[in-house]
Every structure is written in structure tokens, then in C-alpha cells.
């Protein structure tokens, strides 16, 4: 897989550049953890996906119904809706390495 990715870096980069990243951050009220996650996510996106991303923050306190629909357990949770497949990362994203791995952004480094 890795080798395959490396062998076609232009295509991959093309896909990444071509499509818009749609991310959703689930938080619970404006807790420090939630704020930290938002800051980290924004920083990450600015570094790797500048201009190609859109972040939607969902506060479960306002709409708890969504927790069930989107199968949310942990807070904060980042869901990558686009590009497919859907990927989920939980936590404040303080571990940048793991966050990149979770979002599958390492290839773009």
C-alpha cells in the first residue's frame, strides 16, 4: 500500500488538491478540551490543507440526537466525511503525528 502510494505521488497529490476536505468536529459545549481540539484541527488544516477544507463544529449539547445518528461516543471527535472513506479521530489532536495518521494526511507531507 505504502509503496503504491509512493509510486503515484502526483496522482495522490492531485486527488488531495482537487477535492475539498469536509471535516466535522463534535464537541460538547465550549469545554477546554473542545476548544483545544478546534485549535489543533485548524492548525493542522492550515498547514496541510490550506484553502481546501471546511470544518463544521457540532455541539451535541444543542442537538443530542446527532450523537446517536453519527455513532459518537467520545468527545471531541473529528469525522472526515470527505474524501471517502469516512474516518474518525478522537481526542484533542494534541498528538499531531497520530492526528495526521488518522486523517490520512501523511502522504501529502
Amino acid at each position: 500500500m505504502k509503496r503504491a502510494k509512493k509510486s503515484t505521488p502526483p496522482k495522490k497529490r492531485g486527488r488531495l488538491t482537487a477535492k475539498l476536505w469536509q471535516l466535522r468536529l463534535y464537541v460538547m459545549d465550549q469545554t477546554p478540551k473542545s476548544m483545544e481540539a478546534l485549535t489543533n484541527l485548524k492548525k493542522l488544516c492550515e498547514t496541510h490543507l490550506k484553502g481546501r477544507y471546511r470544518i463544521k463544529v457540532v455541539d451535541l449539547l444543542k442537538d443530542p440526537r446527532l450523537a446517536k445518528g453519527d455513532q459518537i461516543l467520545a468527545i471531541p471527535t473529528v469525522v472526515r466525511l470527505l474524501p471517502r472513506p469516512v474516518r474518525t479521530i478522537i481526542g484533542t489532536l494534541s498528538d499531531m503525528e497520530k492526528a495526521l495518521l488518522g486523517l490520512d494526511l501523511r502522504a501529502s507531507d
Binding site: 451535541l60 461516543l73 471527535t77 499531531m96 497520530k98
Partner: peptide, 16 residues
């Protein structure tokens, strides 16, 4: 299925 990065809690479960 889920990547973990940093601190989190199970507030989502509580909410549900």
C-alpha cells in the same frame, strides 16, 4: 477503526 490523538472523554455516550 478509530484513531486516537490526545485526550478525550466519553461525553458522547453520556449525551446519548
Amino acid at each position: 477503526d478509530v484513531q486516537e490523538s490526545g485526550d478525550y472523554d466519553l461525553e458522547g455516550l453520556f449525551v446519548r
